[in-house]
Nucleic acid binder design. Structure first.
Lengths: 122, 122
DNA sequence: GTGTATGCAAAGCTTTTGCATAGGT
DNA sequence: ACCTATGCAAAAGCTTTGCATACAC
């Protein structure tokens, strides 16, 4: 049986409070504001559990390394701002599925990262 | 002054012989077939140098971790085959640049990964 | 009370770095 | 001959794991 510890609850809260993909350090930092004793190993373990439970998803960010974000947002992509170093969700999809399928390949899925400057930094 | 050692030459040869993105272990393995004493640290150092010189590019692969590939192929994307675990270059681009630019954002660049089954595995 | 989850520390990986020496120019 | 690049080993990051204890149920 899975238990609802204050640590796990805090980690979930961190993701609900920040509507963007987060790195481990961010989860630890924000999580400690809720549970000061929060250990990094606990964060790693809970992130793994939350992924297993389908509540989180792991993203391999081209610049920032591994990020985690909530599932259930539907098909979307990410924008990385080179100025403020933050990554945002982008609704919609500018990928043409037909053009995306090359001869002889079966495309099941895709992942897109956009790079540039976000509105706040422009 | 930069020197042309047999190790560096071998590493470059590995990339010329394999027309697809390679991981560090692959570069070490194939490189040792050319220079048996080839050290991993030497590979890391040369990959860095080749990136500085604009001869290689680093790719953050969502599944395989860090890969390296030759520059100068023009704008292209990558296809990862879930069956054989290999990553291929795909010519062309199925991203609609206009649709890709959300309100208020300045898009400078993008990166796309396709996932599925390659012709050999189908 | 029972047994899972936590905190801490140690161990695994991957990547980087220091240092003596081999080797490119 | 000079001085950069190599090989080896140690160190630095990031992530996982073992173990005693705290705490959720």
């Amino acid at each position: 049986m899975r238990r609802n510890t204050i640590q796990k609850t805090a980690i979930e809260k961190v993701f609900r409070q920040h509507e963007r993909p987060l790195g481990i350090d961010e989860v630890v930092t924000y999580g400690r504001e809720l549970v000061k004793s929060l250990n990094q190993a606990t964060v790693y373990r809970n992130l793994k559990i939350l992924i297993e439970d389908g509540w989180l998803e792991r993203i391999a960010h081209p610049v920032l390394g591994v990020l985690y974000e909530r599932t259930g947002k539907g098909h979307h992509h990410h924008f990385y701002c080179r100025e403020c170093d933050l990554t945002f969700d982008l609704p919609g999809c500018p990928v043409n599925e037909d053009d995306a399928t090359p001869e002889g390949f079966i495309v099941e899925d895709h992942e897109l990262f956009l790079f540039g400057i976000c509105p706040s930094c422009d």
